[in-house]
Design a protein around this nucleic acid. Structure first.
Length: 467
RNA sequence: GGCCCCAUCGUCUAGAGGCCUAGGACACGGCCCUCUCAAGGCUGAAACACGGGUCCGAAUCCCGUUGGGGCCA
């Protein structure tokens, strides 16, 4: 009888994929994968004025980037609400035929007046039900709901939530112009797609009793519900653009690893003991909707970046090379072959929280320094510095092999002979070669750059020091 | 405004009546390591919103207050 677990993510293509939506999608996906069920993508594009195909592409791209694959949905047809009006019409007719819905022709002005009157009495506005027994054949279609009693939403996250029917009214299923309303479409779609668990944002909890009544009127089983909390900004208000980036795409562009994004999102409102980092397989294994918290969670970019760095540290050079290439190209930098690039990135791994930062921090690998750090230049690129650079150039020309170990041995020998500390020659060299005072271990950098390139940069620095 | 949801360190959270002198993680401070910067190790500071109950015993249960969020229009 049962189809097993069938869940869906149903975004409106009115913009990019918001991190809150991404987390909802993730929870649905994990729930489906954990239970060996089906994950369905449905596009809620009934708001034609704001829905665009470009936005659908954006959302699809973001889900793919996060590697949340769906078992049913676009590009297959039949998963966009605008393709499903026949379904809504059929269900509306069923409700009329069964006497569970009726037409209403109350003029908007009158409804407005009643609404204002209710507000004045400090009451919830409730449609009067004036047209209930009039047997009209046209107008707005309303659901007939019981005047007394209450509807209890059994929520997997919030527990049972009771809504008194006195707070509900005969809501509109289909507008006078024939367009179905959001809540009606959702019910018809979820029924049609045999959705077993509706996992969605908390902001839909208040609409749920209306929907439950609609399922019942239609004579269909009510799915299980799980309303997950929303993602908040630092001020505990709904996360919005004014708090900074809200789209998944923006984090992708920042160079956050998708695996880190998923790990961060899942831990926002869900936990498994003290564990912070999870592989995909562990997530599928451990995820349980009952461990999802009902309270809102503040989005913390800093922790996301920490996770991103953790994932970067766990990635090998080859993987990093593939991830970083687009960012190098975007920065206009020419990358070496895979093997060399991989070796370079391994020295950068512990020094970058994002792929973008990785390019920034390792820029010297791909182009000669455009200048020198000002303070360090004043301190190191002096006549005395020029003299030391001259000595270094001479020795670097002949050291064999040109490896990190041999270079370190050479430097240690030189500082000992000169009565200096390693740092004295190291920082001078670092500045000459990278233009900066901070870099990966110097001898690794020199070896990776190669003798010719190092000598060229040292000579250039010597010229700059002498000037 | 009515209804609904929520409430543990700054943040994400563990905690399902005694295991809590409240644990972990991020961020922050200190120390160590060290050619720089990181990374790493050790370490410190930091929370049960408030008020009533219930109970031998409450962060945990109940009620209220306050605060935040949402839905409706």
């Amino acid at each position: 009888m049962s189809d097993g677990v069938r869940v869906r993510f149903a975004p409106s293509p009115t913009g990019h994929l918001h991190v809150g939506g991404a987390r909802t999608a993730l929870f649905n996906w994990l729930f489906a994968r954990h239970h060996g069920g089906r994950f369905i993508l449905r596009i809620e594009d009934t708001d034609r004025s704001r829905s665009t195909d470009a936005n659908i592409d954006l959302i699809v791209d973001a889900l793919r980037w996060l590697e949340l694959d769906w078992d049913e949905g676009p590009p297959a047809t039949g998963y966009r609400q605008t393709e499903r009006f026949e379904l809504y019409r059929a269900h509306a007719e069923r409700l009329v035929a069964a006497g569970r819905a009726y037409y209403c022709d109350c003029p908007p002005a009158q409804l407005d007046a009643e609404r204002k009157a209710a507000e004045a009495r400090k009451e919830t506005f409730r449609y009067s039900g004036r047209c209930r027994e009039r047997g009209l054949a046209a107008g707005a279609l309303r659901l007939r709901i019981p005047a007394a009693g209450a509807t209890v939403v059994q929520d997997l996250v919030n527990g049972p939530v009771e809504f008194d029917h006195r707070q509900l009214d005969d809501w509109i299923l289909v507008r006078t112009d024939g367009t179905p309303t959001y809540n009606f479409c959702v019910v018809a779609d979820d029924v049609d797609m045999r959705i077993s668990h509706v996992i969605r944002g908390n902001d839909h909890l208040s609409n749920t009793p209306k929907q439950v009544l609609c399922y019942e009127a239609l004579g269909y089983p009510v799915p299980a519900f799980a309303h997950v909390s929303m993602i908040l900004g630092p001020d505990r208000g709904r996360l919005s653009k004014r708090h900074g980036a809200t789209s998944v795409q923006a984090y992708r562009e920042q160079g956050i690893l998708p695996s880190a994004m998923v790990n961060y999102l899942v831990r926002l409102g869900w936990s498994h003991g003290d564990q912070e980092i999870f592989t995909r397989a562990e997530l599928i294994e451990c995820f349980d909707i009952k461990d999802v918290s009902a309270s809102g969670a503040v989005f913390d970019q800093t922790k996301l970046e920490w996770l991103s760095q953790e994932y970067i540290k766990r990635s090998d050079g080859a993987r990093l090379a593939a991830l970083v290439r687009p960012f190098l190209a975007e920065a206009g930098l020419t990358a070496p072959d895979d093997a060399r690039l991989a070796a370079m990135l391994e020295t950068l791994r512990e020094r970058a929280k994002t792929l973008r930062e990785m390019v920034e921090v390792g820029r010297f690998y791909f182009e000669r320094p455009a200048g020198y750090d000002e303070a360090a230049r004043a301190k190191l690129l002096t006549p005395a510095g020029a003299e030391r650079l001259g000595m270094l150039v001479k020795r670097l020309q002949e050291v064999e092999p040109f490896t990190a170990a041999a270079l370190e041995a050479l430097y240690r020998e030189m500082v000992a002979a000169m009565g200096l500390k390693l740092v004295d020659l190291a920082q001078l060299t670092r500045l000459a070669v990278t233009g900066r005072t901070a870099s990966p271990p110097l001898f690794d950098v020199l070896a990776l750059l190669g003798r010719d390139e190092v000598l060229a940069r040292m000579r250039a620095a010597r010229v700059a020091a002498a000037a």
